[in-house]
């Protein structure tokens, strides 16, 4: 014991660099943001006034904020469901592939290594109204694609780009989950008279539910926070705010509108919202996915 006592400091010394980084790049700015939310700064950033909850009440009273909330909810549901459903489909197919499985899986994992902005730009080019390949095909089908003018199409574009990027992540987890299901369970179900479709819905899908739950939490967080780059590179929140999600609005109000107090208040609200969402998911969903 004595030797351990003497080295009580060592662990802290070893942890110090890591802790310093977390403190400087995470806790300090986060604390600043929370603090900022209670002040109003003058336009030149020379002085600030304490206003208590005024920033929050102003945000919560603005119709713009609720519009962004609604857009975020629609966007998140689209991204989470789209990315999970597609990933599950691909994972089920990949699970059956025997020849060339490795190449197939590697290709499916690639998009994850692509930066969000690059993913966005990729889709933007494919769908560019005048030049894009896909928009040309759509035009041939009689669909007039112009996400720079059409809000719904702009939303579809950012959802597609975000889904495409997140799918790889989900795919890896779903594939691992599928491969962890003992073959004999599906064989027993086949003998018990369940066809492939029924086997999937009554055996595979329920057994994947812990994976699905984990991914639902991760995908919600992703859709709320990490799609900023994708949106910024493609639609920049437009047209007319049709793709302005909460996180994009934080950026716009803060760094374009220079309303730092409001922006800080919004980021605090966003943090609370995601915290609440995760808590709800854990409370009500997790219990159902245990077996």
């Amino acid at each position: 014991m004595a030797t351990f006592q003497r080295h009580r400091l060592t662990p802290w010394i070893l942890l110090a660099p890591q802790l310093a980084i977390v403190a400087v790049f995470f806790f300090w700015p986060a604390a600043q943001a929370v603090l900022q939310a209670f002040y109003v700064e003058d336009p030149f950033g020379l002085g600030r006034t304490f206003v208590a909850f005024e920033n929050f009440t102003r945000v919560l009273a603005s119709a713009e904020y609720y519009r962004a909330l609604g857009i975020t909810v629609a966007f998140s549901i689209g991204v989470a469901l789209g990315a999970m459903a597609l990933a599950l489909l691909l994972a089920v197919l990949a699970d059956r592939v025997i020849k060339g499985a490795h190449a197939y899986k590697t290709l499916l994992i690639w998009p994850y290594a692509v930066a969000p902005a690059v993913a966005g730009v990729l889709w933007m080019f494919m769908l560019a109204p005048e030049l894009g390949l896909v928009s040309a095909w759509l035009g041939a089908l009689g669909i007039d694609w112009n996400h720079q003018l059409n809000g719904g199409q702009a939303m579809a574009l950012v959802v597609m780009a975000s889904v495409w990027k997140q799918m790889s992540y989900n795919f890896v987890f779903f594939l691992a989950g599928l491969q962890a299901i003992p073959r004999s369970l599906l064989e027993a179900a086949a003998i018990d008279g369940a066809g492939p479709w029924r086997r999937f819905w009554t055996i595979t899908f329920p057994l994947l539910s812990p994976t699905s739950f984990f991914l639902l939490v991760m995908n919600s967080v992703y859709a709320f926070f990490e799609t900023f780059g994708t949106i910024d590179a493609t639609t920049a929140g437009g047209p007319g705010g049709a793709t302005r999600t909460l996180v994009y609005k934080v950026f716009e109000d803060g760094f374009v509108g220079y309303d730092l107090g409001s922006s800080a208040a919004q980021s605090v609200l966003l943090m609370l919202l995601v915290g609440l969402l995760t808590l709800l998911q854990f409370r009500y969903l997790e219990r159902k996915v245990q077996y």
Binding site: L185, A188, I191
Partner: peptide, 30 residues
């Protein structure tokens, strides 16, 4: 014929019980 069409039942070495179903549901699945 598919396994389901042969009207056979099989007991596996690892039992292959459906872990997310109760005993009654396991037995009633077929």
């Amino acid at each position: 014929l598919e396994p389901a069409e042969r009207d056979i039942a099989m007991v596996f070495q690892n039992y292959a019980l459906y872990p997310h179903m109760s005993v009654a549901d396991n037995m009633g699945y077929a």
